[in-house]
Design a protein around this nucleic acid. Structure first.
Lengths: 154, 154
DNA sequence: CGGGATCCCAGAAGATACTG
DNA sequence: CAGTATCTTCTGGGATCCCG
């Protein structure tokens, strides 16, 4: 249970897999599987609230200390930064270097694997920038459509 | 503050605010803002529990009815499927076609924009498949390191 | 059949205090 | 400085009932 309890790996999904046992062997994501598919697994690594920011900032700076990151990622709490960094470190995306000094000094940096992921995220970013307009349009369109359908409050 | 309208209504309103507020001219993610950067915004669209599955299944089948999707995505509840589909529809990634019949018939399909996103997700999937081994290794390594540091129980 | 509206809970995230 | 521990709050999403 030591391996399982290290958390991070969405515990919610373990519940799910408890009750769902029918699994096909399709190429696509099959829910009910521990690691549904690699994508889902990887997405979970930066899909949370802070990981993406952490990765991007570490991508721009070779090294960053804990409080440097904390001040860059405005709004993050020390706890969440710790949790986020631990998760990234656990997956080998971020390297943590401790300098046994007083006061303590800890530096974080992307590993090669982390930089590799960063590249993918940047590609995704390109797509996002390219298509943000369309998405925003769609949202407005949807909002208006909703509006005239449920014109209760105005 | 919240005298009468608690619950999920406030949720919808918060999203409305997010939509109105369009900002961010920096290339990188600027935290502290509601919708940090396009990437974050896009990731939020498939980073949740069910959107990815929905997109992938819709990617494999040109059209799918509500209950077809529901049975394919094992574990999903009708509510979450509805919510997920609505969100995707709102962003213009999924098209919803209602046939005014009895009993009702509704078909869902990826829009061109949705298919475009699907391509990105598949690329991400490639990266994930390619690097999953490394990630798993890193996790084991981390688990062992943790183990000998806190070898208190078992 | 395809949802909408409610209720409710576990787990995620925030705030605060303490420590090596 | 860089955390850890603890408490509280918030929110995603599951279960259920109902409706056109």
């Amino acid at each position: 249970m030591s391996l399982l309890s290290i958390g991070r790996v969405t515990n919610a999904e373990r519940q799910m897999l408890m009750k769902e046992e029918k699994i096909n062997k399709d190429e696509t994501c099959q829910p009910g599987k521990e690691q549904l598919c690699p994508v889902k697994d990887i997405i979970a690594r930066f899909g949370d609230k802070w990981s993406l920011h952490t990765i991007l900032y570490l991508g721009q700076n070779q090294k960053l200390r804990f409080n440097e990151l904390k001040s860059m990622i405005s709004g993050i709490s020390q706890r969440m930064l710790t949790v986020t960094l631990r998760a990234l470190e656990e997956d080998g995306l971020v390297a943590r270097t401790v300098y046994p000094e007083i006061p303590p000094k800890v530096e974080y940096a992307l590993t090669p694997l982390g930089q590799s992921l960063l590249q993918q995220l940047l590609k995704l970013s390109d797509w996002a920038k390219l298509n943000r307009g369309k998405v925003l349009e769609a949202r407005e369109r949807y909002a208006r459509k909703e509006g005239h359908l449920t014109e209760k409050s105005t």
